[in-house]
Design a protein around this nucleic acid. Sequence first.
DNA 1: GAGATGTAAATAACAACGTTATAATAAATA
DNA 2: TATTTATTATAACGTTGTTATTTACATCTC
Lengths: 205, 205
Amino acid sequence: MIKNYRLAKVEQREALRCGLLDAASRLLVSEGLEALTMRRIAEEVQASTQVLYTLFGNKEGLFEGLYREGFDRLRQQLEAVPPSAPLDRLLNLGRAYREFGQSNPTYFAVLFSQVIPGFTPSPEIIQEAGPILEVFAVAIQDCMEAEVLAKADVSQTAKVIFAAIHGVISLELIGYLKKQSDQPELSQQIFELTMSSILKGLAMT
Amino acid sequence: MIKNYRLAKVEQREALRCGLLDAASRLLVSEGLEALTMRRIAEEVQASTQVLYTLFGNKEGLFEGLYREGFDRLRQQLEAVPPSAPLDRLLNLGRAYREFGQSNPTYFAVLFSQVIPGFTPSPEIIQEAGPILEVFAVAIQDCMEAEVLAKADVSQTAKVIFAAIHGVISLELIGYLKKQSDQPELSQQIFELTMSSILKGLAMT
DNA sequence: GAGATGTAAATAACAACGTTATAATAAATA
DNA sequence: TATTTATTATAACGTTGTTATTTACATCTC
């Protein structure tokens, strides 16, 4: 009986935690980073700001939850890429990553831009990025075994490919790849060219 | 006489403007983004916050000045790269970019991270990035003429190379390329591997 | 030259933010 | 039942960007 009470307690607590994170997530997506204030989040679930501090400690703690959520969404989007020939799959993973950034720009900013001035993501949070790199790593491993990529350190290769892709999308989201006055240079072209180039380069021994 | 007074006025005004931007720049480098508040900047030159608003309008206006300064510093660092064989020069330009990011992480954040929640850089500011891409473009043009890179659209190629390099440095600065538990993976290795791979890929017809 | 005028600066205030001290309320323990 | 603990709501504090108000001052008009 007492145990049930306690269990209910922690469950309720966890539910409240999830509800707050969910509200924060919704605010982030629908109204952007500006709307993501402690008062606004609390108001969204009709609670006081105090609960945010008992559950998350401070705003950084709440952001850690958003990190996890963001990485999870990204991972799910990557894992939803259907199987295909090794190299095609790698290309499609890259395209899925781009699509994630474009459809969730605010989450992308939370994950990869420093949206809180003095806040550097903790080692624990950085470790949350592991599964994303892992998805790329297995696809790369397949490519190496199919001999469409040169055999090399898989982890390093994954980081190289991920970084290149990430660079294009970062610049694109800020607006640095927009056309300047003359011909309309499509960001997608740059993206595809970057992917094909880096893969070509990594295919050589 | 009257003209001299007016001239002196605008000169004084411009001097004050430069002084404020300089103070902001110093604060940004020495104490980071957290210290970059309107009150702190004004205090640094012993003035009231009001002058900041008459000269820059608001904080975003002041940040536009920092954008220009940041891009200028980056351009200078790139132009300081000594001439060498085309491909070597391109590699050294990449390394200079990396060095800029590592020695000026806060400026890097201003230029490429969205440090003000609701603020997207204006087209004018984005155009400030032109000279940087241009430095890469001429080096790439040389590489194409020397036939160490395949002939292609120079502007597009510049963006591809820049994006790949930028991706590595972005991830590195946030901390995502740090070693995870086992072998100490040097970020520099990833950087060099990314550059050589993308250049190899772009060398093929 | 004296008063009107318009501009820029200093001061103080405002709204909103993250955070915390205080007080009240519920629950667990003895 | 009494007491201690934990959690919440309320209100407040300090700081932020920004603005209203006042004050100083240089310029223009008569």
